[in-house]
Simulated scan of single mutants.
Amino acid sequence: METGKARRMGLDLPLGNDPASIRLRVEAMERLLERSFMLPGTNRPVGLDAIIGLVPIAGDAIAAMLGLYIVWEARNLGMSKFQLARMIGNVGIDTALGAIPLAGDLFDFMFRSNSRNLKLIRRHMDKHHPHTQVIDG
Rank of each mutant, 00 (worst) to 15 (best):
M1Q: 11
M1T: 13
E2R: 15
T3E: 15
A6M: 14
R7A: 10
R7P: 03
R8Q: 11
R8T: 06
R8H: 11
R8A: 08
G10H: 02
G10V: 01
L11F: 05
L11K: 02
D12M: 09
P14D: 10
P14S: 11
N17M: 10
N17C: 09
N17S: 14
N17Q: 12
I22L: 12
I22K: 02
L24E: 00
L24M: 08
R25E: 04
E27P: 00
E30Y: 01
E30V: 05
R31M: 04
L32V: 06
L32T: 07
L32W: 08
L33N: 02
R35Q: 10
R35K: 13
R35M: 04
S36I: 02
S36E: 08
F37A: 07
F37P: 03
M38K: 10
P40E: 03
G41I: 00
N43P: 06
N43G: 13
V46W: 06
G47E: 04
G47R: 00
A50D: 05
A50P: 02
I52F: 07
I52L: 15
G53M: 02
L54Y: 08
L54S: 12
V55K: 08
V55H: 09
P56Q: 10
I57G: 07
A58H: 10
G59I: 00
A61T: 12
A64I: 05
M65N: 14
M65Y: 14
L66H: 10
L66K: 11
I70D: 01
I70Y: 01
V71G: 03
V71H: 01
E73M: 06
A74D: 01
A74N: 02
R75F: 10
N76G: 15
G78D: 13
G78T: 10
S80K: 05
K81D: 11
K81T: 11
F82V: 08
G89V: 01
G89C: 05
N90G: 00
N90D: 05
N90Q: 03
I93V: 15
A99N: 07
P101C: 08
A103S: 13
G104S: 12
G104A: 12
D105S: 14
D105I: 07
F107W: 11
F107Y: 15
M110T: 11
F111G: 03
R112M: 08
R112F: 03
R112P: 03
S115L: 06
R116V: 00
R116T: 01
N117D: 04
L118T: 00
K119R: 14
R122W: 05
R122E: 05
R122S: 01
H124K: 04
M125C: 09
D126G: 14
H128K: 12
P130N: 13
T132K: 06
T132F: 06
Q133S: 14
Q133V: 15
V134N: 10
I135S: 08
